[in-house]
Design a binder for these strands. Structure first.
Length: 275
DNA sequence: AGGATAGCCTGCGGGC
DNA sequence: TGCCCGCAGGCTATCC
């Protein structure tokens, strides 16, 4: 499940494979996964055909590839999206929607069975920042607790809903929201506006620790992601609450509760996490 | 206005 | 054994 750590792991693993490479051609198998933000139909030029790939940037869960021609592709992985680089002679996986032929004989594929993901194209980095990234909250790795506290002052929404809102804070998904709130001892249903500054400080600190630990372990997560999609064995072991509903709390032994908060399946400890 | 909810889409696993 | 249904969740559109 690509949240911030998986996207950052992807950025790091993809970078040495594609940075500086030239895109010889682009195969568009499913045009509808691409969306132009510059008022025209997406063309291969928007998808960096003929250009080098100069930089890989990330904000929250979004990955941007910046071309030497200035154009930008912003990739959202959604739930099942993946980018894979392999020898161009390899058969493309099922649900490969876009392929980039690189000048080193390899091919980069955008694969996304459920198509919750997609690729936005922008004429330049400024356009990406203005149209999309400036609308998102600060990246979860660098957000300040004061900023979070300010933007949620008086809010009656559940704190979990706030953490999942990319316009408030970018990069947190269902798994790390639950894990962070458990580690912080905060009930996911607690009103965001009723959380004091010191508690926000604890939440932000724990969030960053959890995200950074996941990034450190993320290489393996992303490598076996396609298998982990169904069976996800090793990734689950690291989670204290996610996927452990009904099992004993690792802290107090109470049965972990499962419910729906902010429209998402949520697991928390009814004893350790306070309203 | 802002929060809640439905729908998108496919694969997998539980239950019968 | 095989089929069906529910669920997984990031994001957008729409409703309340």
């Amino acid at each position: 499940m690509p949240e911030l750590p998986e996207v950052e792991s992807l950025r790091r693993s993809l970078s040495p494979l594609i940075r500086g490479k030239r895109v010889i051609s682009v195969d568009i198998n499913r045009p509808d996964v691409c969306k132009s933000h510059d008022d025209h139909i997406v063309t291969v030029l928007d998808l960096l055909q003929g250009s080098t790939i100069d930089r890989l940037l990330r904000h929250g869960k979004q990955l941007a590839l910046v071309g030497g021609n200035g154009r930008v592709m912003c990739i959202g992985l959604g739930m099942t999206g993946a980018m894979e680089v392999q020898d161009a002679s390899c058969v493309a996986a099922a649900h490969t929607h876009i392929s980039w032929m690189l000048d080193d004989g390899r091919r980069m594929d955008f694969i996304d069975p459920r198509r919750f993901g997609g690729i936005g194209t922008f004429k330049d980095l400024d356009s990406l920042q203005r149209v999309r990234w400036s609308m998102l909250g600060p990246d979860a790795l660098v957000i300040q607790s004061g900023r979070l506290s300010d933007s949620l002052r008086g809010s009656v929404r559940p704190v979990k809903a706030a953490l999942l809102d990319q316009n408030i804070i970018a990069g947190v998904g269902n798994i790390y929201a639950d894990e962070t709130l458990f580690k912080s001892g905060v009930d996911p249903r607690k009103h965001a506006g009723r959380i004091d500054l010191s508690t926000w400080g604890r939440i932000v600190e724990n969030l960053k620790v959890i995200l950074n630990a996941a990034i450190d372990a993320g290489g393996s997560t992303i490598r076996d992601y396609r298998k982990a999609d169904g069976s996800s064995g090793s990734a689950q072991d690291r989670h204290a609450v996610y996927g452990r509903g009904g099992e004993p709390c690792l802290n107090c032994g109470s049965s972990l509760r499962v419910g729906v908060v902010a429209g998402r399946t949520t697991v928390w400890c009814p004893v350790c996490q306070k309203r």
